[in-house]
């Protein structure tokens, strides 16, 4: 019953971690001062969740690429399942990034979107790429071929990401925006809140992936047993 113990530890960690993170973000970390108008900047609190979900989304897509390479090497079903579920989770966190990012930007730039902000634009392109990945998966009927095509696209898509980031950064250099946002140094207590939230989000990702994987494997097992009967 080792699995059960691990479940309890992970779920307990997440439940407590959620409240600790909320406390750290809203009580422990001081509110920031908006450098554009020197007023208290409550919306800066979005930063903690925004960056954490962006990081988690990126991690998820990295896992897709690694699982894709493993799948092409040994054709294991588990690697394919990891790639698929990780892509799905990555989409969820990237969506969260794309919602929180513009809200944060609005409080700083005064507008929701800026095409010369490389991180935001890269997140958008990531979102398109992996929605495409999931559509590709859903439009191939045969299991084995679907896994192969998806793996090939998963690798190509991930390789594209740093180049997209670079291109948007250089685009900004040749078409400077009105206001360039560069986050200044974080206050130490802000750092604590940030890294803790980052950690909790990563655990969220791990548990989501682990659960989804278990559900799919159990369903396989169930189908196999049903055929036996």
């Amino acid at each position: 019953m080792n699995k059960k113990a691990l479940d309890i530890i992970l779920y307990g960690l997440l439940l407590i971690g959620m409240f600790v993170s909320l406390y750290l973000i809203f009580q422990y970390a001081p509110p920031a001062i908006n450098p554009t108008n020197n007023q208290t900047w409550y919306e800066q609190k979005i930063f903690y969740v925004h960056v954490s979900s962006a990081w988690t989304g990126f991690l998820a897509f990295f896992v897709v690429a690694v699982a894709s390479i493993i799948f092409l090497r040994n054709e294991s079903r588990i690697a394919d399942l990891v790639a698929q579920t990780s892509a799905e989770i990555g989409i969820v966190f990237t969506t969260l990034t794309l919602i929180s990012g513009p809200l944060w930007a609005k409080s700083f730039w005064g507008r929701y979107w800026d095409w010369s902000e490389p991180r935001l634009v890269t997140a958008l392109i990531l979102w398109f790429l992996y929605i495409g990945y999931l559509i590709l998966r859903s439009s191939v009927g045969e299991d084995f071929r679907r896994a192969r095509f998806a793996a090939v696209f998963g690798i190509i898509a991930f390789l594209d990401v740093p180049i997209v980031f670079l291109s948007v950064r250089w685009y900004r250099a040749s078409h400077p925006p009105l206001l360039v946002f560069e986050p200044g140094g974080l206050d130490p207590s802000m750092k604590v809140a940030f890294f803790f939230t980052l950690f909790i989000f990563t655990v969220f990702y791990v548990v989501l992936l682990r659960n989804a994987l278990r559900i799919k494997l159990l369903q396989d097992e169930l189908n196999r047993l049903k055929e036996v009967i």
Binding site: I125, F128, G132, I135, L136, V140, F149, V164, S167
Partner: peptide, 25 residues
């Protein structure tokens, strides 16, 4: 890849455009 999918012609631009963006810029 897309020639083997059910959606064929529809899928290619959806996969290609985000990948090709840096080159386009």
């Amino acid at each position: 890849i897309t020639v083997n999918t059910r959606t064929r012609e529809l899928l290619l631009p959806i996969l290609l455009f985000p990948l090709i963006l840096p080159v386009l810029i």
